[in-house]
Structure formats: C-alpha cells, structure tokens
C-alpha cells in the first residue's frame, strides 16, 4: 500500500498525459491531469512556506548560532503572509464595490504591494546584480589560454563581447558593408558564430539531453527508478 499505490499513481499520471498526446479523444483527460498538477503546484508554495516556518522556528528554539537572523526571516515571512492573505489595505474591485474582499491582492498602495516594491524587488534584483562582479573576478583569475581549446573559447567570447556592442562596429568599421569581407565585420561575425557554430553545438547538446530526459522519464513511469519514494518502510 505504501509503495505500490504511489507506483500506480505515477504510472497512471504519466500515461494519461502521453496518450492524450496521440489520441484526441483522451485530450480532456490529459488536460484534467495537468490542471490537477497546476493546483498541486500552488499547494507546494504553501508547503514551502510551512517548511520555512518549521525550520526557522526550530533554529530559534534551539538558539543555534545566528538565530537572530531566523527571527528577522520569520517576522518578514509572517508580516508578508498576514497582509497578503488578509488583503489588508486593499480596496475593493471597482466593479464589485460592495465586496470588501474583491480587490486584487497586490493592489498598488496596499502593504503587500509595498513589501514587494520596496523589499522583494530591490533585494532579489540586487542579489542577481552582484553576479556581474563575480563574473569579472572569475574572468581575471580563471580564464587561461592554456591550450587550443581554451583559446577557441576565449576567442569566441572576445568576438561576442565586442561584436554585441558598438565597439565591434568601430573596430571593424574599415571593412565596407558591401565588400566580400563584410562577413568579417565583428557584428556580422558574431551573428554567424551564433547561428552556425553555437546552433550546431547546442543542437547536439539538446539532442543528448532530450534522450536523457526521455530515458529518465520512462524509468520513473515504469517503476525502474523508485528513488523518489525514498527508503525505509514509513
């Protein structure tokens, strides 16, 4: 019961979507399975929030090093959750003015929107922005033209970096647009590399990955790979 039922559910869930691909009559079944998946994906957000709450509460109660930060995280989580689920400060939808709860949860001006605009947005954006610095540092320390392969990689990177800005246009501006060598102008050469060499390389990688995904999926559906069920009887 604890292991067989999940195997059957996995098989059925997958097969419904596969046959829906081929038999138009079963298309509606595939849609239903996909919609159920979509709903579960939303419930997974609740699970994620619950896990965060559980882990950080444990850190605080165990007084592990840095538990103060867990308190900050919990406060941020609970405040956002309360104002968001409670639609605090959200005015009704103008179409349904007599329904107090009809406004959209992230209405501009509401506390939930405020937390997004002045908390979530600058923080996540800056987290990604600092990667620019690490890429620069890595370029300085790690990219070494040790052999022919490395030179190919670096050479391509140089051409792309220059060809995708105005620097490329200036550097090879002496080549006339209508000459037989116009393909060597950096901006045109960049396009050629992307559409020919990059396309070939990525296409091969894509074919390889597709085969990998297909075999993994089949293993899961047929119950050959059961690692997702975990070990142990419970």
């Amino acid at each position: 019961m604890k292991r067989t039922v999940p195997l059957i559910i996995t098989f059925l869930g997958g097969v419904v979507l596969i046959i829906a691909y081929f038999i138009p009559y079963t298309q509606a079944w595939g849609e239903k399975a996909a919609v159920f998946f979509d709903v579960l994906a939303a419930i997974a957000f609740v699970l994620g929030g619950g896990n965060l709450l559980k882990n950080h509460l444990k850190k605080v109660s165990d007084r592990v090093a840095g538990w103060g930060y867990s308190v900050i995280c919990l406060v941020a989580f609970l405040v956002t959750l309360t104002v968001g689920l409670g639609k605090i400060g959200v005015n009704p939808n103008t179409q349904f003015s007599n329904y107090a709860w009809s406004g959209v949860y992230d209405q501009v001006g509401s506390p939930f929107w405020w937390l997004y605009e002045y908390g979530f947005k600058p923080l996540t954006a800056t987290m990604f922005a600092i990667l620019a610095f690490y890429v620069a540092s890595a370029a300085f320390r790690a990219f070494r033209a040790k052999n022919f392969e490395a030179i190919l990689l670096l050479g391509t990177a140089f051409i792309i970096l220059l060809g995708r800005t105005y620097a490329g246009v200036v550097l090879t501006g002496f080549i006339p647009d209508d000459s037989a060598f116009s393909g060597l102008k950096l901006e045109n050469f960049t396009v050629y590399i992307m559409q020919v060499f990059n396309t070939a390389g990525n296409r091969a990688i894509m074919i390889g990955i597709a085969l990998g995904v297909a075999s993994t999926s089949l293993k899961v559906l047929l119950g050959v790979d059961r690692s997702y069920l975990g070990s142990g009887g419970d």
Partner: peptide
Amino acid sequence: AYWMVVGF
C-alpha cells in the same frame, strides 16, 4: 510568503 499569497 509572496509566492504563498500569490498561489493562494
């Protein structure tokens, strides 16, 4: 919390 509220 944001994802949870949006999902809800």
